[in-house]
Design a protein around this nucleic acid. Structure first.
Length: 194
DNA sequence: TAAGGGATATGCT
DNA sequence: GCATATCCCTTAT
């Protein structure tokens, strides 16, 4: 499992390192997991895309907290977004997980997403929250505790065997209009933005 | 391409 | 208080 130290480093470094890691969600109705193929960084009050750019408010408070905690919020009134808090307590920063390659619990994901299309299960920040049943109830939970319902780990050999990936993790960097720090796994069909 | 929907922050009164 | 604009999206068209 990725340690607190992993999340205490500079956010852009963490951002890149998270590509290829596995996000695991344990819930009452089963286990679901996926390989991170796209993510995006928000760091500091000077980042105009970050909640923190508009000061320390109730909504941005989690960003200022200690690293290795989940920051979940609702956007557009209906979609949950999942971030991992990074850097030292007091410095507002996080990485938004934007897309996963589904790994385990495929049937459960299909049921929650109401589709059988594997490419449509986790190819977006709100889609993956729906597929993994991530909502506000998980806001603030640790992602580096063995007992947590939400953890991140290195890919294991078992995963490699199961997936037999054709591509190797190579990170691409996308510079959007105002989102400068988005990375994705090159060649993956599971990224959210084509 | 647009509509759907709720929480948040801001700017009034 | 209340009104309004905005928000890191998805689905259906």
């Amino acid at each position: 499992m990725l340690s607190v130290a992993f999340y205490s480093r500079p956010t852009l470094q963490i951002l890149e390192d998270l590509i290829g890691k596995v996000l695991i969600r344990k819930s009452g109705d089963g286990l679901t997991s996926g390989i991170i193929v796209e993510a995006e960084a928000y760091r500091g009050q000077d980042d105009p895309a970050s909640f923190a750019s508009r000061g320390r408010t109730k909504r941005s408070e989690m960003l200022y907290g200690p690293p290795a905690r989940a920051f979940v919020y609702l956007t557009y009134g209906m979609h949950h977004l999942f971030n991992v808090v990074t850097e030292q307590e007091g410095f507002p920063a996080a990485v938004l997980i934007r897309a996963l390659e589904p790994l385990e619990g495929m049937a459960l994901m299909q049921q929650r997403r109401k589709t059988d299309d594997v490419l449509n299960l986790c190819s977006g920040p709100a889609k993956l929250c729906q597929a993994l049943d991530i909502d506000l109830a998980l806001n603030g939970v640790s992602v580096s505790s063995p007992r947590s319902p939400l953890i991140l780990i290195e890919r294991t050999n078992e995963d490699e065997k199961r997936k037999d990936l054709a591509w190797r993790p190579r990170v691409g960097i996308r510079e959007g209009r105002d989102r400068l720090w988005r990375v994705y796994l090159k060649g993956s069909p599971f990224v959210s933005v084509k």
